[in-house]
Design a protein around this nucleic acid. Structure first.
Lengths: 233, 233
DNA sequence: GAGTGGTCTAGACCACACA
DNA sequence: GTGTGGTCTAGACCACTCT
């Protein structure tokens, strides 16, 4: 059963996957080392490495030097979510995108926002509330704080005309961030902007983005009722 | 500025990232081809390829044969979520995990579940409702349908003793699935099981998992109030 | 110490998409 | 056609980790 001439890394990956699904290699079990597989498949070790590394990233294999490679016991389902620029998500559904700034003001944020952004006492902030619509219907109500000390150009920008998100994507660099998803009951303000009843269950995405050690923006996005975020596993 | 001797793919990636952040290569702009970069960095083309491919997967670069590589205009933020086995999430927080089956019955699912699972009319289903607790407090209420036609062993399993999720992870193979996240108001049943008021905003994860063309299970998990799912960007 | 995965190299050929 | 990324190879050395 040697030399099957499986010579592309995708083919190697497919064959390995088949063996895992067929329980030829059961969860928790070791699989042959790269050298052995390369000989069996009649390809270079680098090709096997590429295939196994890809499966390892996907969480299906666990690899350690010296210890070897084993089939993951509890395959961690990793879901990769695309966080869309809302305009594209809306336009992608064939709807007309709309943007309205509800409130723009420079003032100090509540303590929890300031501390989450690790901002010094002297930092100035721009507070932008806005609504984005799909075919005229409210899609998202956004409550955003922009750190003017780290992104001073934002002070000169007309956020009546362009959404803060799009402006930031174009003009502010960002290195990393945190994102969280939750459900909240709509309060009076959110309910009013999204045109729904108070208390409705709302899907909320919260983000903080950073450029190095400096927080750029803190944003909460309250989605319309019934919104679902989906992906494949 | 040639031959800087950047010879690991991580180092190449770091340097490329630096140039993107510093706007030396602006969004939408082409970057030099692999050959040129390899010469500049004093490494092999394959090393550059590894670095750029990784950035491409992350959504920061767009690569096309012949056309070359450009900095993504709208870097799609991809968030990778780890969907945990709840027991590990709870125990990882240092809490005591508990599991209680609330209802186990074999009967036909509602039409929407059946069609979502693309199950034929003859298929039999097991319906399992359960609550999982952390230090005694309700953590998740789970409403699950298991396709007995595709996973017949489930009929002989005692789901009073083991959570359906853990059993399925161990005994059923799965090739792919869909997952979605949403917010709903707690109805009377959910509120009762989670010990909270009716109407509370609840974070819901819905999953369908498949083995090839056959649906294995459909599950909705209703989390306790205030639950947030977090990740890094 | 020794075995395994992780990576680099230099060269080669292929596949695709553009002119 | 032609230039670009995509991949494979054979060999080598390194880094980690287990014994």
């Amino acid at each position: 059963m040697a030399k099957s001439d499986v010579n592309s890394w995708q083919a190697v990956q497919a064959e390995v996957l088949r063996r895992i699904h067929a329980r030829i290699w059961a969860p928790g079990e070791m699989i042959p080392n790269e050298q052995a597989l390369a000989e069996e498949f009649g390809c270079a070790r680098a090709t096997v490495n590429r295939a196994l590394q890809s499966l390892s990233e996907a969480g299906l294999l666990e690899r350690r030097r010296k210890a070897g490679t084993r089939v993951a016991l509890h395959p961690v389902r990793k879901a990769t979510l695309d966080i869309p620029v809302l305009r594209y998500e809306i336009e992608g559904q064939g709807a007309v995108y709309g943007y309205t700034a509800v409130q723009i003001a420079e003032h100090a944020p509540p303590e929890e926002v300031r501390s989450a952004m690790q901002a010094g006492a002297g930092h100035r902030f721009l507070h932008v509330k806005s609504v984005q619509t799909a075919d005229g219907a409210p899609f998202v109500f956004e409550d955003r704080w922009i750190n003017l000390t780290t992104v001073p150009e934002a002070a000169k920008t007309d956020f009546e005309a362009i959404s803060a998100n799009e402006w930031l994507v174009r003009h502010a660099r960002f290195t990393h961030g945190q994102i969280s998803f939750a459900a909240v009951n709509a309060d009076a303000e959110v309910a009013a902007h999204l045109a729904l009843r108070q208390g409705a269950a709302i899907f909320v995405i919260s983000r903080i983005t950073w450029d190095g050690g400096q927080a750029i923006t803190h944003v909460q996005q309250f989605f319309h009722e019934g919104y679902r975020m989906q992906t494949e596993l």
